[in-house]
């Protein structure tokens, strides 16, 4: 009797889990299905199987907007941003992890404190500054700020502290290696697992960013993918198949990245939460 009751509750639990999993996937599934359907089909009903209008929708997109140019703009911004973040965060994290200079704690608290500041607080000042420096409509102001990436420093610091022994650095020093040589040849490769995880996060956050490119870029051929996609509805008010396909093109790469790297992404998320 008791066993039966607990069996029912186990089934209910799985039912709940599966239902939620379906809710998580179905919008993406419908997006992909509808991107292969014509506007007329979409206006008539809901479909669960793909149609044959993918190519037609794609041609409609290309006629109105160069979606791949948006893709390229996003890459041009995100890749250098990630490289800068990765290098300078590791540099900073190493400085905090393996040197004992005066005021270290205060400096580190300042970095943590900046994580509490809303991103939009300095946006208008930054915009005005870029106007005065003639940097509006340039990718530079979207890339350079990534030198200072607080959460990446935080994460890599704890990784270096826990997994790179002091003796290794001492051995390098005794062999006569310079500090930057040790950093480039020893620390960077050893910290790679942490750098990799945080780089994926930084890439995705940069890739998804909407407000900064919207504010700092003017000309439509420089727009990043999210900006292009956010304007897509105005351009194709009458063609839903094309809108769905545009959204799919912007979403599928991120979906793949999340699925492939889910394990390290999930472990990367939790470090900040548990280390309180």
């Amino acid at each position: 009797m008791i066993q039966n009751k607990s069996k029912v509750s186990v089934y209910l639990m799985y039912l709940f889990l599966i239902l939620l999993a379906v809710i998580c996937i179905i919008p993406f599934y419908m997006m992909i299905i509808n991107s292969t359907r014509s506007n007329v089909e979409i206006s008539q009903g809901v479909y669960l199987t793909p149609g044959d209008q993918l190519k037609a929708n794609y041609e409609i997109i290309l006629k109105k907007v160069n979606i791949w140019r948006g893709f390229l703009s996003s890459v041009i911004i995100a890749v250098p941003a990630v490289l800068l973040s990765a290098f300078f965060s590791t540099l900073t994290a190493y400085g905090f992890a393996k040197f004992h200079f005066k005021g270290k704690e205060i400096f580190f608290w300042v970095i943590l404190g900046t994580m509490m500041i809303p991103q939009q607080l300095g946006l208008i000042g930054y915009y005005d500054l870029c106007v005065k420096l003639g940097l509006i409509d340039s990718y530079v102001p979207l890339i350079l700020p990534n030198i200072a990436n607080a959460s990446m420093v935080f994460f890599i610091r704890s990784y270096i502290e826990s997994s790179i022994p002091d003796s290794l650095i001492e051995a390098g020093l005794i062999d006569g290696a310079g500090e930057f040589y040790i950093f480039n040849r020893l620390i960077l490769p050893l910290a790679m697992p942490a750098i990799g995880t945080m780089s994926i996060f930084t890439f995705i956050y940069k890739w998804n960013d909407l407000i900064n490119p919207m504010v700092l870029l003017n000309s439509s051929e420089k727009f990043t993918l999210p900006v292009v996609i956010s304007n897509i509805r105005g351009l194709y008010e009458t063609n839903f198949g094309a809108i769905y396909l545009g959204v799919a093109i912007s979403v599928v790469p991120i979906l793949l990245v999340v699925i492939i790297f889910s394990k390290s992404l999930i472990s990367g998320l939790t470090i900040g939460a548990v280390k309180e």
């Binding site: 919008p27 993918l225 900006v227 996609i229 979403v251 979906l255 999930i266």
Partner: peptide
Amino acid sequence: ETFRTLFFLPNLVTAASIGVLFAVF
């Protein structure tokens, strides 16, 4: 782990695209 990944999936997807997607829904 499969459930965990599936529930996490929507989190990192571009919000702007999600907005367009739901607007057309």
